[in-house]
Simulated scan of single mutants.
Amino acid sequence: MSDFTQRFLFDDFDARGELVTLEGSYRHVLAKHPYPEPVAQLLGELLGAAALLIGTVKFDGLLVLQARSTGAVPLLMVECSSAGELRGIARYHAEQIGDAQSLGELMPNGDLAITIDPANGQRYQGIVALDGANLADCLSTYFATSEQLPTRFWLFADGQRACGLLLQQLPVDRQKDPEARAASWEHVVTLADTLTAEELLSLDSETLLYRLYHEEAVRLFEPRALQFRCSCSRERSARALVSLGREDADQLLAEQGGTVVIDCQFCNQRYPFDAADIAQLFAGGGVEPASDTRH
């Protein structure tokens, strides 16, 4: 399994962790657009973050991470469903990248919106400034300031593989003494801070955890599979056209020479609609092509 998250638990501490490895899905995202190396790395880190976060929230729906800035990379956007389906996209100005490598250089004056969109229930959004050394620092700050359980992130990507580690302190259970809880949490975080990008990107879960926590009792659970999948469809594109109204749809049809083409920014899939298709949509006839032309 090349794309997965894997949970682990400390038997003696009130703490848990999650590891993520993305290969096929990450490469699939990068194959859709010719991203420069620093942009591909940022996008890989955000994909890893979304996969880790989806494991911390028990819900049926979609988690969206959207980073915006005034710099060379004005947009990073990643979606991960509760079913483990990932997609992502970045917008960048190639002429502005130059030698920029760090998050601050690529995305100045930025912020990151974390949106939980359940299939049933209320939508929730939190926002954190992109003023940390990297995306992992920004996410760790968000949890530290949002009155949630203390949570730390480590994220790395190299254009071929994206990997990450999450540690989270759990509610009081095994350790009742506040000082003991604090010391244990500092201990597991300090050890994780010794982790290098090379180790996280190259080692399997068992080896990685042994290297970090061989003196602790750690239980590693079965991995959970992830995959790239875009949620675009002809049906969703048709609904977008209908939402414009008949007059605007006909105007768009005329402007585009008789065929409206809706492009998915995530996967580059194209959905064309000609005059007969649009007439059928507004007549309530469904989204299958009305003309003899096959799309």
Results as ranks from 00 to 15, higher is better:
residue 148 Q to K: 15
residue 285 G to N: 04
residue 39 V to N: 05
residue 37 E to Y: 13
residue 232 C to D: 02
residue 28 H to V: 03
residue 101 Q to G: 09
residue 85 E to T: 07
residue 66 Q to M: 13
residue 86 L to A: 08
residue 59 F to P: 01
residue 61 G to E: 07
residue 132 G to L: 01
residue 142 Y to R: 13
residue 15 A to M: 09
residue 114 I to G: 06
residue 140 S to I: 02
residue 189 V to S: 10
residue 42 L to H: 10
residue 201 L to K: 05
residue 277 D to C: 02
residue 147 E to K: 15
residue 26 Y to A: 08
residue 128 V to G: 03
residue 157 A to S: 13
residue 250 D to C: 01
residue 220 L to T: 14
residue 109 N to H: 12
residue 43 L to D: 01
residue 102 S to L: 04
residue 293 T to P: 00
residue 213 Y to G: 14
residue 160 Q to F: 01
residue 221 F to L: 14
residue 108 P to L: 06
residue 261 V to M: 11
residue 212 L to F: 10
residue 74 P to W: 00
residue 148 Q to I: 04
residue 144 A to Q: 14
residue 248 D to S: 14
residue 185 W to F: 13
residue 126 G to M: 07
residue 250 D to H: 06
residue 285 G to L: 03
residue 116 I to Q: 13
residue 181 R to L: 08
residue 129 A to R: 04
residue 180 A to C: 03
residue 210 Y to D: 12
residue 127 I to R: 10
residue 150 P to V: 12
residue 157 A to M: 09
residue 149 L to A: 15
residue 75 L to Y: 02
residue 172 V to D: 01
residue 280 Q to G: 11
residue 78 V to Q: 00
residue 263 D to C: 03
residue 152 R to Q: 11
residue 253 L to I: 05
residue 162 A to T: 03
residue 103 L to W: 04
residue 73 V to M: 05
residue 286 G to V: 02
residue 106 L to Q: 08
residue 172 V to C: 00
residue 146 S to E: 13
residue 16 R to N: 08
residue 103 L to I: 06
residue 18 E to T: 12
residue 227 Q to C: 08
residue 138 C to S: 15
residue 144 A to C: 13
residue 290 A to Q: 04
